[in-house]
Simulated scan of single mutants.
Amino acid sequence: MTKLKIFGLLLIAALLGSCDGKPPLDNPARGTIVIAADESFRPLVTQLTSAYSGIYPDAHFKVIYKPEQEAINLMLKDSARMAFTTRLLTANEKAVLNQRKIVGASTKLATDGVALIINQTNTDSLMTIDELKQVFTGKIKQWSQLKGGNQSGPITLVFDNNNSSNLEFVLHKFEIKNVTGLRIFTAKSNREVIDFVRQNPSALGFIGVNWISDGDEPLTAELSKDLRVVGISPKTNPTERADYFQPFQEDLGMQRYPLRRPVYALSREAHPGLAGGLVNYVIRDAGSLIIYKLGLWPSVPYNREVNLRK
């Protein structure tokens, strides 16, 4: 068979393939995919996807923000290509992908923290991890019961959603099975948690720290106004201010902040596509700089080469 005939057959096969009615597959530089993400990661995911689309104008992301379990379910049902979460898939969730002969992928992108926020008028901004556990077991119900507490009134715990990663993380950490009897209020988003705490001096809010940790973002300054971030000590009986840590970059990276958690990108992508391109951008390219900028701790630091000249 001559080279001309071979080329002709390949051309015909390509034409037939393009006319089979199926849309072309996306690739790392082009296409449109749906991403599901826990709402507490909205600032992080927004900046990562926006930066990636700025490099590749033909890459488009439709992001759906849901409580973590719903975000994972969207990915399992093939309603989303990937999900940003605080945990890996369970055995039952992996089985869903296995039944469809899909090899899922998981990549740790960063270390995040659940930030505890209080009203600016509340000066009880230090708490031990043991005290926080007692709040969730119902042993501590009043601000005045905290060590050195000078705020009166009951403690109102404020979360963004009944199924949020923030709430699930805290309940899992303290092995809490039943929240009946706890004074818990749920808002619709992390931003509404911030607004509620700003208006209620007795509130103790729980949010993803990336909402208030980007020092260069005007929105961060707006959201942080009239709030205090609680310092938490892993010690039962701390003796000095240095025993308390906040959920910001250094204390997250050095694993000093007790309520730190991972950020994962879970994917069901079956070809070298846009989801893989985004993950590679985060862990192998300048995406880690965005994580730094947001005050989180990237899993893979961005390597900077500096040339010194005499």
Rank of each mutant, 00 (worst) to 15 (best):
M1R: 09
K5V: 10
L10K: 09
A14W: 13
L15D: 09
L16D: 10
G17T: 13
G17N: 14
C19S: 15
G21A: 11
S50M: 13
S53G: 14
P57L: 08
P67H: 07
P67M: 06
E68F: 00
Q69I: 14
A71F: 03
I72H: 01
R81N: 06
L88F: 05
V96Q: 06
N98K: 11
R100N: 04
K101C: 03
V103K: 13
T111K: 05
V114C: 05
Q120N: 09
T123C: 01
M127E: 11
M127F: 07
T128P: 10
N150S: 13
Q151W: 09
S152Y: 11
L157G: 10
V158R: 10
V158Q: 11
D160P: 12
F174N: 12
I176D: 04
K188L: 13
N190D: 15
N190S: 14
N190Y: 02
N190I: 04
D195I: 06
F196W: 12
R198T: 05
Q199K: 15
L204D: 00
N210G: 03
W211M: 01
I212N: 00
L223I: 01
S224I: 03
T236I: 12
D243W: 02
Y244D: 01
Q246V: 07
P247F: 03
D251Y: 10
D251Q: 14
P258H: 07
P258S: 10
R261M: 12
Y264I: 06
P272F: 14
L274V: 07
A275Q: 06
I283T: 13
S288M: 04
L289K: 14
I291N: 00
I291D: 01
K293W: 04
G295Q: 05
P298I: 04
V300K: 08
N303K: 15
N303A: 12
N307M: 13
L308A: 04
K310H: 04
